[in-house]
Design a protein around this nucleic acid. Structure first.
Ligand SMILES: [Zn+2]
Ligand SMILES: [Zn+2]
Ligand SMILES: [Zn+2]
Ligand SMILES: [Zn+2]
Lengths: 158, 158
DNA sequence: CCTGTTCGGGTTATATAGTAACAGAACCCT
DNA sequence: AGGGTTCTGTTACTATATAACCCGAACAGG
């Protein structure tokens, strides 16, 4: 079986969903952007921009930092990937392609295992609500929230 | 009035509290560490490591990146400052010196104004609890959590 | 006193992360 | 053809963070 978050078939399905989402949004999932998205999706763990760049160079020898950062910016805007601030790394959005938040960023949280590096995306309404209430209590107009919990995943805890 | 989060007298009080906390913890708040802490405390906004380094050089001309990073690591361990991951910058802990969490890190959240850059530290029990529950629900042993909300502060919203 | 050890810090070099600025290609519209 | 927009290539640079090594002060045990 292929490496990464799923088989090659699953990857193709996710890429196709991304394609459709971009068409509906009136933006272009170009070859470059598709390649970078594929690299992010097939990784088991969050990948840094330069790790992605190294892999991208195999397909696109002339690639340089701006190449990958521009693609990442696009994918972030479309909500197809997220950035893990704590790791300076990027992961595919697990919800992308599910119509309930098609096309743009959504509230989410990360659970980062310090042992194996596995990063799990969740989207817990209670957390989102508690955060919104806490912000409002300070008279703060809340926008996007970075929420990243470090600890041990279920597998590593055992 | 002096710049920063408070007057010179307030600064001295906070530094003295830090001193006492370090003594109780059996660690040394050396001159260098005290200088870096003072620089962080007197800033109105989170400061990056290199901004701190520039200011530190005025007192300590030979200072280099490791100089400031080592001091910051120490202050982080002692819970005297926090890092704002989203900004790669550091702020003094507003709770340091208050006995209820003397000596080490505590759960906290940041409200970051995208307009004026002001960053407010809060420690909302409901957020902390919601996060702990969400993590537990995924079988995740939660440790420290990075929680940083971007938006507009009350002043800038008006 | 000597000696091993720990800790803090100086110094140099390097690694990693991110952006600015400009040029060219491709495409669409008139 | 001309002129706009979008996307990518390319070069150079800035910003953030760490590795590795050395040295001196402080201290403990012999
Ligand atoms: Zn997501
Ligand atoms: Zn794990
Ligand atoms: Zn604090
Ligand atoms: Zn503001």
């Amino acid at each position: 079986m292929a490496s990464g978050q799923g088989s090659a078939a699953v990857m193709e399905r996710r890429l196709a969903a991304a394609e459709g989402q971009c068409i509906r949004a009136g933006v272009q999932l170009t070859e470059l952007r598709r390649q970078v998205l594929a690299l992010v999706l097939q990784a088991e763990q969050p990948l840094g921009a330069y790790a992605l760049l190294d892999r991208l160079k195999e397909q696109r020898p002339g690639a340089a930092p701006p190449t990958v950062y521009r693609a990442l910016d696009f994918l972030l805007e479309q909500g197809l990937i997220h950035k893990v601030e704590r790791l300076n790394a990027f992961v595919g959005c697990v919800g992308a392609g599910h119509d309930h938040h098609a096309g743009h960023q959504h509230a989410h949280q990360f659970l980062i295992c310090g042992q194996c590096g596995q990063t799990t995306e969740i989207s817990d309404p209670a957390v989102t609500r508690a955060l919104a209430e806490a912000a409002a209590r300070s008279g703060f107009q809340a926008g996007h929230a970075v929420v990243e919990v470090e600890g041990r995943c279920a597998a590593c805890a055992a």
